[in-house]
Design a protein around this nucleic acid. Structure first.
Length: 863
DNA sequence: TCCAACTGCGCG
DNA sequence: AAAGCGCGCAGTTGGA
């Protein structure tokens, strides 16, 4: 059965669904299936006890439960949802509600061996089910599992869609569709028969969604939706022509928008060539503005745009003036629009007007991945699939006829504006408006950082390019020379050392000699592992070569080759312009890509960082928050011991390093033997204890795992573990409070009020508030420093890099002292009332990202 | 040929 | 039954 497949991002437009069906079964004719139904259905010939099973339950249902297909029990009884999972589903509804249920399946005949019904079978049944829904007029259709979700909406990814209301129209009847998890999946997850070990979490989610529907229908009086009428999608969209009249209409429309400002916000959407404005041929092709009712779509630099030079300039001038005007601007992913507009009109566009962002709104309301695209959201709020409305290839907009681009552009901005209205209402209702505003504050400084970028030193890049290629070749040659590899190549074919499957075959079939490469952690699917830890135990020269090859390839492929001229991360200005996202992580951290600066080597091969340099005459100044997550744990839990340790500068990691050494001296021996001095030995042991004992324990690691981490006997670890929680019992109590809060609300909150929703495992419940709060502290500080960059006209106060707990600035050499006076206090003195621990930053300075020297630690209680 | 899943590995 | 959390990217594999 296919109900738990997770095809997260894939979107199934209606047309695409048909294509998909055709591709799977070239002979399949959807129209014919719909018309001929059972006459062409492959299930018609199967031996079935209850063929074409009639829907069961109420004839005037309030809730219509739509499953995938009958199973064995259902086929035997001739009634839907009577098997084990069916009973579990029925149990979710109180007895008076049960009388209002009607049951049906997407496919009415049982497919042999409960296989997933084929597209043809699904299409053959479709009309009969649609007719039944239309006839019986339910208020909510509960789509059970992935198949029903796809059947009704064309979407996949039930885990991302479950629990959302989607307006639908079935014939003349309009109602809600809510996908829910399949009870069979929930039950199996609970029994833990496969890797879905998030057991009761999924059951909680499933049960809460059922309960939500019952509550909304029987106590809250859910109103029926009014899905958008596809006939009127393009209403009020005005295409501006490239002539005097067009210019006049543009001016008039902008004035009309301004007349209603700031009451009525206006959406802005740009269509561009390239996703970033830093390429030599990056241009804005068209733009569109809409208040949801009136929309204009304006050509700009699309090849089909026929503005004369003066008129084009006037269009830009009008747009710029309007941007600085009183209207509140909405965008879907405002970072994108802001970045392009900053490139067109200068950086002061970022803070000179107020921005709203429908993607951020969606993220605040529900951070689940894959559903923040405008097309998913229009489906959810308006009941139609936006992308399916136009057959446009987003990657080829420059080659697409102008009028087509404009219509598409207009539709996007129109629905961005309308979406803003809907989501704003929900943010208010859920009490999340404050969180949303807090989130929006960070956008200008992020765009500013992206626009400034950072210069790359090509000499360094070339140096590492040569070095790594040389090392890669050396390792490859070493591998080729091994006799087992020669044997493998003679018998099987060329050996690719980068292929884990080939490497496994080589080891198992040619090297073996009783050596084990079985996977120890069962979080992965494959039986064998060739990762670093496993290979390190392999007593054969291939292990050393492979690890060296991987080490060098990783460095070269991920950090160096894309920075060479022509590499995808290097722009014509010689800089990288890393993109920071605010809506990708589940915890509110920023994520970074193109290139991801958050995973550049920091420990082994940190010297690679020297490719990132500063503009001429500047140095890099970094402020690193010290132990920020520990401080957040202390502030959230108010644990007396932890707070005291922070105020008195007591080093709890070293404390635990010593405690562990006392109980189990042998774990320290290797550190003592390896280090030059005793002090250095303790230093490195301390950092191991920090990362393998203290933090994992705070984040929910159990004793067995900790013992394995440090390689100490479980009996001794147990004593230490108990001692740890005895000492920090305030943290333990706080964790219990978090669990109770989650049980009640099905979400947890950061100290800044940001929510992360179910399903959450026990450890995510502990971790999310900490990680999210720590990130908010850092990003907010970056934003406040950056604001000073603008108001005090000190451009060097705009941060360039944010890596979870640090902010890095490029400061002119003669302004460093001055900059620190601004940066340090802003970073350590936090404007939140829950701050009850001292906050500290380490400042380091240097000519590039690698060669930095720590100049001091500054703490809030010393300033 | 393209896409998604998987493995492995870098960072906090 | 078993459990630290959070990311993004490169490269391979296998299915459509």
């Amino acid at each position: 059965m296919g109900f738990f497949t997770t095809r997260s991002e894939k979107r199934w437009a209606r047309g695409r669904r048909v294509m998909e069906i055709r591709r799977k079964a070239p002979a399949l004719d959807v129209k014919r299936c719909n018309e001929m139904a059972c006459e062409v259905c492959t299930l018609a010939n199967e031996k079935i006890q209850s063929p074409q099973m009639k829907p069961s339950g109420s004839n005037h249902p309030r809730i219509y439960i739509l499953g995938e297909a009958p199973g064995a029990w259902e086929d035997q009884d001739g009634i839907q949802f009577v098997g084990r999972s069916g009973q579990y589903l029925r149990k979710q509804f109180p007895s008076q509600v049960r009388k209002t249920l009607r049951f049906n399946n997407c496919v009415r005949c049982r497919p042999p061996d409960n296989r997933t019904p084929s597209p043809l079978e699904v299409e053959c049944c479709r009309q009969s089910i649609l007719k039944d829904i239309e006839k019986t007029k339910p208020e909510v259709v509960l789509g059970v599992g992935d198949v029903a979700l796809r059947w009704m909406t064309g979407q996949t990814g039930i885990k991302h869609w479950c629990g959302r209301y989607i307006p639908i129209r079935v014939g003349k009847h309009a109602c809600w569709f809510m996908p829910i998890l399949h009870p069979a999946f929930v039950l199996r997850a609970r029994n833990g028969s496969d890797r879905e070990w998030l057991s009761t979490e999924w059951a909680d989610v499933f049960e809460s969604h059922c309960a939500k529907v019952v509550r909304d229908l029987f106590t809250e009086r859910l109103e029926l939706p009014d899905p958008e009428d596809l006939e009127h999608l393009y209403d009020g969209i005005e295409i501006i022509e490239c002539d005097r009249r067009g210019l006049k209409r543009l001016r008039k429309r902008l004035q009309a928008f301004d007349a209603k400002a700031p009451l009525i916000p206006v959406a802005i959407d740009l269509e561009t060539h390239h996703l970033r404005p830093y390429h030599s041929d990056s241009v804005v092709l068209t733009f569109s503005l809409s208040d949801g009712t009136n929309t204009i779509a304006v050509p700009l630099d699309h090849p089909g745009a026929m503005w004369d030079k003066a008129s084009r300039k006037e269009v830009l001038r009008l747009l710029e003036a309007w941007l600085h005007g009183p209207c509140i601007k909405i965008a879907h992913n405002a970072l994108f629009e802001m970045e392009w507009l900053a490139e067109l009109f200068g950086l002061d566009i970022l803070r000179s007007c107020s921005w709203d962002d429908t993607m951020v709104q969606a993220y605040i309301l529900d951070e689940r991945k894959g559903n923040m695209g405008l097309d998913s959201l229009t489906l959810q709020y308006f009941g139609f699939n936006l992308k399916a409305q136009s057959d446009i290839d987003r990657n080829k907009l420059r080659e697409t006829p102008l009028d087509k681009v404009l219509r598409y552009n207009g539709l996007d901005s129109r629905y961005t504006a309308r979406l803003d209205g809907k989501q704003r209402g929900r943010l208010d209702a859920e009490g999340s408006m404050g969180d949303y505003r807090f989130h929006m504050k960070r956008l200008p400084s992020i765009v500013h950082a992206q626009a400034l970028g950072l210069p790359i030193d090509q000499r360094e890049v070339r140096k590492y390019d040569n070095l790594f290629i040389h090392e890669i070749e050396k390792a490859k040659a070493g591998i080729k020379g091994l006799k087992e590899v020669k044997q493998f190549e003679a018998e099987v074919g060329p050996f690719n050392p980068a292929s884990t499957t080939q490497l496994t075959k080589l080891i198992v079939n040619y090297i073996h000699k009783g050596q084990q490469i079985e996977r120890k952690d069962h979080n992965r699917k494959s039986k064998y592992s060739t990762d670093k830890v496993t290979l390190a135990l392999l007593k054969h020269p291939i292990a050393r070569y492979i690890l060296r090859l991987r080490e060098m390839s990783k460095l070269h492929g991920t950090y160096i080759s894309n920075l060479l001229p022509g590499g995808s991360y290097l722009y014509p200005d010689g800089c990288i312009h890393t993109e920071f996202h605010t809506t990708f992580t589940a915890t509110r951290r920023l994520s970074s890509d193109n290139p991801n600066v958050q995973n550049f080597p920091m420990h082994k091969h940190a010297e690679v960082r020297s490719v990132v340099v500063t503009p001429p005459g500047c140095v890099l100044v970094s402020g690193d928050y010290g132990q920020i997550e520990a401080r957040v744990i202390a502030m959230a839990s108010k644990d007396k011991v932890l707070l005291k340790a922070l105020w008195e500068r007591y080093d709890i990691h070293m404390d635990w390093a010593r405690r562990i050494e006392r109980v189990c001296p042998s774990v320290f021996t290797p550190y003592r033997d390896e280090a030059e001095t005793k002090e250095k030995a303790w230093d490195s042991f301390r950092s191991v204890v920090k990362n393998k004992w203290v933090f994992p324990t705070f984040y929910g690691s159990f004793c067995e795992r900790l013992a394995r981490n440090l390689d100490i006997p479980i009996r001794k670890a147990q004593g230490l573990y108990d001692e740890f929680w005895d000492m920090f019992n305030g943290v333990r109590k706080w964790q219990d409070r978090l669990l109770a809060f989650y049980d009640k609300h099905l979400y947890v909150e950061t100290l800044t009020g940001h929510r992360r929703h179910a399903p959450l495992s026990r450890n995510m419940i502990f971790n999310s508030p900490v990680q999210g709060t720590a990130s908010d502290i850092v990003v907010d500080a970056g934003d406040r420093v950056s604001e000073a960059a603008e108001t005090d006209d000190k451009p060097w106060l705009q941060w360039r890099l944010n890596i979870h707990d640090d902010l890095t600035f490029a400061v002119p050499k003669d302004k460093v002292e001055d900059a620190l006076v601004d940066i340090v206090p802003t970073m350590v003195i936090l404007p939140f009332k829950w701050v009850i621990a001292p906050i500290s930053v380490d400042i380091s300075i240097g000519p590039n990202w690698y060669n930095k020297k720590k100049i001091g630690t500054f703490s809030s209680d010393e300033l």
